[in-house]
Design a protein around this nucleic acid. Structure first.
Length: 646
RNA sequence: GGCGGCGUAGCUCAACAGGUUAGAGCAUGUGGCUCAUAUCCACAGGGUUGGGGGUUCGAGUCCCUCCGCCGCCA
């Protein structure tokens, strides 16, 4: 039986830069990929970018770029981000690649030939943000799209439709009999949705309106709807339909998504597969959101946490650990810096890092850094081994169920117990008594456990695990993070207490996880937030009625007007409001002094006086300006000079 | 409106199909150790398990109802 594991992330839509949500999904996928590799599986890990659609074409246009330039840039940003986060994917798929286009066209033609599509005229409210027609219920009171707060455009057009309803019964039956969707409450959600008839899926967009997409092979006037295009990436990635090995991977396909794209993955995609005669994928893993102060992360709220920034500040392994440890897979979790720092300091620095450091430095100081031979094992030594093994076994059970938070907690119980064990057995006291054999046995027991911790944690903490394992000289050929690690590292060695072997020379590696100065970081963070708030405040905002009332607007009668010498644009006015004032105004290009005299105008009476060309201006007159010129504002009926405007 | 989820110590979460004084970790307090990244170990305080009612010998766990938060669908 083939041991293969195929894991995918969604292909990320290139209308935004990588954020924490993307990073989480991708890190989970990477951790699973590494986990299965160490279990001896042949793993294919696919990620990539989704690059077609209205939004992309418009975003490119807004930046004065061609769509191609635009998507190339963003796709590269994603790649760079994943490289920096140590994501070891097998293939990065782009929906604009020729390879993918051929697959999409092949699928479209196949389904068209099978008669799955029909042409129909449709009219309705189209939202460019959603890239689809909206039902009346998706509009708010003002007739705007609820998601995008933008007015939809009324369109009438012919399109190709895919009759999903035909397959609803099959899908309902399939999902209720299997456990493809995990956690199961998302399956319930989908089943609930399948109680109602499914509307047909529009799979095309007329080229007249949008050309940034894959052309329908059977109608040159249309391109493919983005979702139909995007979902097929999971097939393209493993070489469908030409490379025969695709089926081996497909039989073991696992798809990670966030809950917002449940419907396309749990309804559209299975039906597309069914219509094509391709077996259902094996698993759909659905996770929740990282909330920022209980709000879903979103660009407009300006609370995006940059995964790159985080990893630069705290370290890649630290961020990976926090994300996997603090979210119960499937549920939403709250992202917080104090929690992140707490995890780093308490779990990584204090429990694990310090355990490693105290053990290795003790070995170096008292045993010259060489692994001593075993003495006789005491019941305490055996108890220690049992607890370590139990923790690892529980970890290995929970991990593939995506219960990373439980898996890590189980393993940490073993790590914490290692600290208890070393305290109880106090090798430093044995050494003082001259009992090196006893001290050495305890030390070896711990070092072997550390080797297992590092190995087990490799999927979560790849960098520090490799550092540690090579310091322990356990896997002397351990090169670097990149692919060949699978050939040297294996979970088979998790329960091997003979590693590292007697006589092995250990190099110290210094603290693996430096403690984080919480106060310092939080202060810096506050500064950034204050800055961000200030920036937000610069955006157009409403003013209050009180703020408006502070402006003293009055009617003023022009008593006298003349040009200001040496200035083409300025007029000097004397006005009564009712006290006499001098106002200098830049209206000489539009008004002759004579035509103003006797007129009533509106002035801002409490504007801070300013000197213009040596003349004091005690106020400002109101005027409206457009391309045709300028017009002063005058009361519609004559009013007393000084009359309040408001 | 329909379906579903959540609400347990200051914080993050446990508690398999109802069963002894509701558990961990973090944070807090006290003591100890000194190999170690001011780390580690021990002990302690802290909860009327959102409110109310019911079933049961026994309920955080089942039922009803109310409150609050959330998701999907309409």
């Amino acid at each position: 039986m083939d041991k293969r594991f195929y894991i995918t992330t969604p292909i990320y839509y290139v209308n935004s830069l990588p954020h924490l949500g993307h990073a989480y999904t991708t890190i989970v996928a990477d951790a699973l990929a590494r986990f299965y590799r160490l279990q001896g599986y042949e793993v294919f890990f696919l990620t990539g970018t989704d690059e077609h659609g209205d939004k992309i074409a418009k975003a490119a246009e807004a930046q004065g770029k061609t769509p191609k330039q635009f998507v190339d840039e963003i796709a590269n940003t994603f790649k760079e981000t994943w490289d920096k986060l140590g994501i070891n994917y097998s293939y990065f798929i782009r929906t604009t690649s020729d390879k993918h286009k051929r697959v999409v066209q092949h699928v479209l033609q196949t389904l068209f030939d099978k008669g799955e599509f029909y042409l129909d005229e449709y009219e309705g409210n189209y939202c460019f943000g959603c890239e689809r027609f909206l039902t009346p219920k998706e509009l708010d009171e003002k007739g705007l799209c609820k998601d995008h707060k933008a007015p939809p455009v009324y369109l009438k057009e012919k399109n190709y439709f895919f009759n999903l309803e035909k397959y609803r019964g099959w899908l309902k039956d399939y999902l209720s009999k299997t456990e493809v969707i995990y956690p199961s409450f998302y399956r319930e959600e989908v089943l609930n949705l399948l109680e109602e008839p499914l509307p047909p899926l529009c799979i095309s967009r007329p080229k007249i309106r949008l050309s940034w997409g894959i052309e329908l092979p059977f109608d040159k006037d249309y391109v493919t709807y983005v979702w139909f295009d995007a979902l097929l990436n999971y097939l393209t990635g493993i070489g469908y339909p030409d490379d025969p090995s695709w089926q081996d991977y497909w039989a073991n396909s696992h798809h990670l998504i966030a809950k917002d794209i449940l419907r396309p993955h749990a309804v559209y995609f299975p039906i597309m597969l069914k219509a094509l005669g391709i077996p259902m994928y094996k698993k759909l893993f659905v996770h929740g959101y990282w909330l920022m102060g209980s709000l879903k992360m979103s660009k407009s709220l300006g609370n995006i946490v940059s995964p790159l920034e985080l990893s630069q500040t705290f370290g890649v392994d630290q961020v990976r650990y926090y994300l996997l440890r603090d979210m119960a897979f499937g549920y939403d979790a709250e992202f917080s810096l104090p929690n992140l720092i707490n995890r780093i300091n308490a779990d990584l620095a204090n429990d694990y890092g310090n355990l490693v450091n105290r053990t290795l430095s003790f070995l170096e100081r008292n045993f010259g850094g060489t692994i001593p031979p075993w003495g006789e094992l005491t019941p305490e030594d055996r108890e220690f081994r049992e607890k370590v093994e139990r923790g690892i076994i529980r970890y290995l059970e929970e991990f593939p169920r995506l219960n990373f938070h439980t898996a890590l907690e189980e393993l940490w119980q073993a790590i914490r117990f290692a600290n208890v064990y070393i305290d109880r057995e106090a090798p430093w006291t044995r050494v003082k008594e001259g009992n090196y054999q006893r001290a050495g046995t305890v030390l070896r027991n711990i070092i072997s456990a550390i080797k297992s911790f590092a190995l087990a944690l490799y999927p979560v903490l790849p960098n520090s695990s490799l550092t540690l394992l090579s310091a322990l000289s356990v896997f002397p050929n351990t090169p670097s993070v990149i692919p060949s690690e699978a050939s040297t590292l294996s979970f088979k060695d998790l329960f091997n207490w003979e590693l590292p072997a007697s006589g092995t020379k250990i190099k110290r590696c210094g603290p693996l996880f430096p403690r984080v100065d919480e106060e310092k970081i939080l202060k810096e963070e506050q500064k950034v937030e204050v800055k961000k708030e200030a920036e937000v405040k610069e955006e157009p905002q409403y003013i209050t009625i009180e703020e408006f009332r502070r402006i003293d607007l009055r009617v003023a009668k022009v008593l006298f007007a003349e040009k200001v010498a040496g200035a083409d644009r300025l007029l000097r006015l004397e006005v009564s409001c009712p006290e006499k004032r001098q106002i200098v105004a830049g209206i000489a290009e539009y008004y002759e002094p004579q035509e103003l005299i006797g007129k009533e105008i509106i002035i801002v009476a409490n504007l801070k006086p300013a000197k213009i060309k040596g003349l004091v201006s005690e106020g400002m007159l109101l005027a409206a300006k457009d391309a045709d010129g300028l017009a002063i504002i005058i009361p519609e009926k004559e009013k007393e000079p000084g009359a309040k405007v408001g």
